[in-house]
Amino acid sequence: MAIPSIFLNFLFPPPPSLFVTTMSVIGISSLANAGFMEIKGKHMQYSKFLNEGVAKKENGAKLSSRNGMLLAYTPAFVVGLSSLLAFPDQDLRFLLLASSLTVHFLKRVLEVLFLHKYSGSMGIESTIIITLSYTVSTATMIYAQYLSRDLPNPPIDLKYVGVGLFLIGIVGNFYHHNILANLRKEGDKEYKIPQGGLFDLIICPHYVFEIFGYVGMSCISQTPYAFAFTLGTICYLMGRSYATREWYISKFGDKFPKDVKAFIPYVF
């Protein structure tokens, strides 16, 4: 993967791995396309979008949302934890990256088990796609870091900046997930317009802080793959945010505050 010289100040050289290079291209292109499909109305079949769009499958096999999300996050958590156990003598950057990935998905698993409230189901096909995406991207990010251990370090070290961004992301994401969880009482299956925190400005602040987390992990890693995957994730979550706002408008009509944007306050 060719990298303009200016970026070499911030990135490790690409590792000599056709697999990592291929996964970089696949990751950014597939996620960007998924974001574009969200904007076009072709949604991943989970959460509030399960019965929306042309991808609907009336008789398709489904899982409960709780079990589906637990399945989606657990393998990636296991990959992150296993890397810490299998490679205990790596450098600080590797340990920070593997630890942040492990904490990221452990948080998600714990939220599924103890925080989120669910009212729907997930299509099996979407569950498999999401599970593979998280698991393969986590393993590839760790593998790319491992391959970079003997390469010259980037002149500009971003790993401590990355730790700060990761912590901001994980705290902000949890805070807004907690707001969403408290919107509905136990047994209440009706959707409500979220309020509080940055929900008063954008409809998906939890996605924005998830991006902060991934940008943080990319800065910790400073590998081309990590940044490529993060860029693809930004494209997807922007598309998902746009689709979420459109869904709220279609469901609540004039009750939805028009000044609440999808992703960027006052802009988009």
Rank of each mutant, 00 (worst) to 15 (best):
H116A: 08
G27N: 08
L97A: 02
Y225L: 13
L183Q: 12
L84F: 11
D89F: 15
H43K: 12
Y225H: 11
D91H: 12
S241Q: 01
D200N: 15
F229A: 12
F268S: 11
F166C: 01
G53T: 05
T230H: 12
F49D: 04
D89T: 13
D200E: 14
Y207G: 08
S121N: 10
I220P: 04
S241A: 14
R66K: 15
L115M: 11
K107P: 05
L101W: 01
D91E: 14
G27P: 00
L96Y: 09
M1D: 09
L110F: 07
V78I: 15
P257A: 10
S24F: 00
Y118N: 05
F105H: 02
F263D: 04
Y191A: 09
A144Y: 02
T233P: 05
C219L: 14
P152H: 14
G120D: 12
Q45C: 08
H176V: 04
L158W: 05
A2D: 13
P154L: 04
T135Y: 12
I6V: 13
S30W: 11
F166M: 05
T102G: 02
P75A: 03
A98N: 01
L201Y: 15
H116L: 09
G35Y: 07
M1Q: 13
P155W: 11
S99P: 01
M238L: 15
S221Q: 03
H177S: 01
S100W: 01
M141A: 15
S65R: 06
Y236A: 08
K192P: 00
F77M: 13
M122G: 00
P265E: 02
L115Y: 06
G123D: 13
G162E: 01
G253L: 06
F227V: 10
L71I: 12
R149E: 11
L96M: 15
C204G: 08
I211T: 09
I26Q: 07
M69P: 02
G123Y: 02
K258L: 10
Y46P: 05
A86G: 03
R108E: 00
G213L: 03
G123A: 14
P265R: 07
G162W: 01
L113T: 07
T244G: 03
M122L: 08
E190N: 14
Q145F: 05
R66P: 00
L70M: 14
F105S: 05
A61Q: 08
F212L: 10
M23W: 15
I124L: 15
I170D: 07
G60Y: 02
L101K: 03
Q195V: 11
I130K: 04
L110G: 04
L115N: 03
I28N: 00
F252H: 12
T22Y: 08
T127M: 13
L92I: 11
K57Y: 08
M44E: 07
I170W: 01
Y214W: 15
L18M: 09
P4D: 10
R108Q: 10
I264G: 03
G68R: 04
Y134F: 15
D188I: 12
Q45K: 13
L151D: 14
F229L: 14
M23E: 09
Y146Q: 09
F209Y: 15
N59I: 07
P265H: 02
P154T: 01
S137G: 07
V260E: 06
I220F: 09
S83I: 00
I202E: 08
E52W: 07
I203Q: 09
F263N: 00
A139L: 13
V171L: 04
A34Y: 06
